[in-house]
């Protein structure tokens, strides 16, 4: 590993950290607004298709893609967790401990968001999209 990352690597590292922390939350928010909005508003118009796609497929996409993004954030969080377990010698411990806190929060929160997306998606298997 290179001794000291350059500014661009630092920026990338910082962004990766924030993706780990907030990725699941953002993905879930997108999932919720897309899946709910598409379902409620398409059904309100009396249709069950959006263009060429059946409504069910569109909602399924709004479940699967955010779920994958959350898994990605979970992996990134795990990476931060591992990288902060045994910091190399000579590194200031202060930010490492802070990042470790964020990593713990990130791992757990991504698991929670993943659980929500999966549970919501499971309803797709049981309920027809426009049943009231």
């Amino acid at each position: 590993m290179s001794a000291h990352p350059g500014p661009r690597a630092r920026l990338a590292g910082g962004l990766l950290l924030w993706y780990a922390v907030l990725g699941g939350a953002v993905a879930w928010a997108v999932h919720l607004f897309a899946a709910w909005g598409v379902d409620e508003l398409t059904c309100a118009s009396g249709r069950e298709r959006i263009g060429a796609l059946p409504l069910q497929a569109v909602v399924a996409i709004a479940v699967v893609l955010p779920a994958l993004a959350t898994v990605g954030a979970l992996l990134a969080a795990a990476l931060v967790w591992r990288r902060t377990a045994h910091p190399p010698e000579g590194l200031d411990e202060h930010p490492v401990r802070r990042s470790r806190l964020l990593a713990v929060v990130a791992i757990w929160s991504n698991l929670l968001f993943l659980a929500i997306i999966v549970l919501g998606g499971a309803a797709l298997l049981v309920l027809p999209p426009c049943l009231r």
């Binding site: 919720l32 709910w36 379902d39 409620e40 059904c43 659980a115 929500i116 919501g120 499971a122 049943l131």
Partner: peptide
Amino acid sequence: LSYSFFSAA
């Protein structure tokens, strides 16, 4: 179905 997303959360 739209209820279920909120029910899950």
